[in-house]
Nucleic acid binder design. Sequence first.
DNA 1: TTAACATATGAACACTTATTCGATTGTTAC
DNA 2: GTAACAATCGAATAAGTGTTCATATGTTAA
Lengths: 101, 101
Amino acid sequence: MEPTFEQAEELAGMFHLLGDVNRLRLICACLEGAVCVQDLADRFSLTPSLVSHHLRLLKAARLMRAARRGKQVFYTVNDEHVRRVLSDMTTHVAEDAGGER
Amino acid sequence: MEPTFEQAEELAGMFHLLGDVNRLRLICACLEGAVCVQDLADRFSLTPSLVSHHLRLLKAARLMRAARRGKQVFYTVNDEHVRRVLSDMTTHVAEDAGGER
DNA sequence: TTAACATATGAACACTTATTCGATTGTTAC
DNA sequence: GTAACAATCGAATAAGTGTTCATATGTTAA
């Protein structure tokens, strides 16, 4: 059950990508369906350039995938595991927010 | 299901802590039971100082808790949610390692 | 072909952070 | 009390990274 060093590195890599607020919000925004770069930039008041940079990392890590339709490129969550982890953690955080204080 | 900005910040904070290889291994090593700083340092060939630094962050984030017994301080995983997420992700990574290539 | 739009890319900067070293605190045994 | 061990703390350094800006690539319409 304890991961090997390489597994730990891979896991840490994933967590590190999820550890940035903007990146995390980008992923969450694409959980339900594909969204294009511009819409993401508008929704979170970010530069298209910054969004693209983040999406590039997420794509390289196989966490998301891109599909071009016309001028726009739509991104969606690729990994089903991440989807589960995110929903788990989100609900957990939501639960704790009420119970701790 | 999409987190608020504050929830995203909290989530990202957790993921960020899990996103460092050494920290992740430290947590995983304490999943099954309490381990003291020295043993952790020995097992992963890290400085006790470095281990302590990491554990301090993990403790501050409520992910681990410390208990002193004699000279030594034993650390264990505090959060049951994190325990689930970690075991989930570990098995997932282990599964994918065989299936992808 | 041009023009306008959408995204990607590369360099540069500012900021964060992991790690090391040295000193300090706390505990136990003598 | 002192000595030895365990852990923590603080500062300093070095490496990494998020963001911005400018430029380039790709796509569609005229």
